[in-house]
Amino acid sequence: MQRRTVLKGAAVGGAVVLGAGFWALPTGVAPAALTLEGAQQALVALATRELTSLKGWSPSEVFNHCAQSVEYSMDGYPQLKPAWFRHSVGPLAFSVFSARGAMRHPLDEVIPGAAPLLEPASTVAAIARLQAALVRFDAHSGDLHPHFAYGALSHAEYTQAHVLHLYNHLSLIRVVDQSA
Rank of each mutant, 00 (worst) to 15 (best):
D108A: 02
V16A: 14
A121S: 11
L51W: 00
Q68A: 07
V16H: 09
R104L: 13
I127F: 06
V89H: 00
P112T: 04
R104H: 13
P91L: 07
G151R: 08
V16P: 12
H162T: 07
A152L: 14
G56E: 06
S60I: 04
L107E: 07
I173R: 00
A161E: 00
F94R: 04
A24E: 05
D108F: 08
F148S: 00
W84R: 13
G101Y: 03
Q41H: 13
H140S: 09
N64R: 11
L51N: 00
Y72E: 11
P26D: 08
R49K: 08
G21F: 05
V89G: 08
L18I: 13
C66R: 09
L117W: 02
G19R: 10
R49A: 11
P59W: 04
G21K: 02
L166N: 11
H65K: 10
S95M: 06
P106N: 06
A149F: 06
S98M: 12
F97S: 07
L25G: 02
A128G: 05
G151A: 12
G38S: 06
Q131C: 14
A39F: 01
T27H: 12
A132C: 15
T123F: 04
L36N: 13
P106H: 03
Q68K: 09
G38Q: 13
V17W: 15
A180Y: 15
L166C: 11
G90R: 00
W57T: 00
L92V: 14
A152Y: 13
L153D: 07
A102Q: 02
Q79A: 06
P26G: 03
I111V: 05
L170Y: 03
N64F: 07
H169L: 01
K8H: 08
A156E: 14
D138V: 10
A121C: 14
A133Q: 12
D177N: 12
V89E: 01
M1L: 14
D143W: 13
G13H: 11
R174Y: 00
C66N: 10
A67Q: 02
G9V: 09
V176S: 01
L46E: 10
L172K: 07
L130E: 08
S179C: 05
A139M: 15
A39G: 10
K81M: 10
L80E: 12
Q41K: 12
P26F: 06
A33F: 11
L80Q: 11
A33C: 08
V96F: 01
H155K: 10
E71S: 15
G56R: 05
V96R: 09
Q160W: 04
G101C: 03
F137H: 14
G151N: 10
N168M: 04
